[in-house]
Amino acid sequence: MELLILGGTEFVGRAIAEAAVERGWRVSVFHRGRHAPPPGVAVLRGDRVAPGGLAALERGAWDAVVDTWSGAPRVVRDAARLLAGRVGRFVYISSRSVYAYPARPGLAEDGPLVEASPDDGEVDYQRAKRGGELAAGAVFGDRALLVRAGLIIGPGENVGRLPWWLRRIARGGPVLAPGPRDLPLQYVDVRDLAGWTLEAVEAGRGGAYNLVSPPGHTTTGELLRACVRATGAAAELRWTDPEVILAAGIQPWTQLPIWIPPGELYDMLHQADVTKAVAAGLRCRPVAETVADTWAWLRGLGGEPPQRPDRPAVGVDPETEARVLAG
Rank of each mutant, 00 (worst) to 15 (best):
G232C: 13
G207R: 08
T218V: 07
R225K: 15
G207F: 09
L224A: 06
T197M: 10
Q186N: 12
T218F: 06
H217E: 10
G221Y: 10
D189I: 11
A200Q: 01
W196N: 01
T197R: 03
L223K: 10
V212A: 07
G206Y: 05
D182C: 05
L183K: 01
E202L: 12
V228G: 03
R225G: 13
W196Q: 02
T218A: 08
D189K: 04
A200S: 08
L185P: 03
Y209I: 00
G221P: 03
G216M: 04
E202H: 11
R205T: 05
Y209L: 01
R205Y: 09
E202G: 11
V188L: 13
L198G: 00
A194M: 09
L193W: 07
Y187D: 01
L211M: 13
H217N: 08
G195L: 08
E199C: 00
W196D: 00
A230S: 10
P215W: 01
L223C: 13
T197I: 13
L193I: 12
G221A: 13
D189E: 13
E202S: 13
L224G: 00
L193F: 12
G221L: 13
A226L: 03
V228N: 00
G221T: 11
T218S: 10
G216W: 07
A208Y: 01
C227Q: 04
T220V: 15
P215Y: 08
G216I: 07
A203K: 14
Y187F: 10
G216Q: 08
P184T: 05
G207Y: 09
L183N: 02
P214E: 15
G195W: 03
A233C: 14
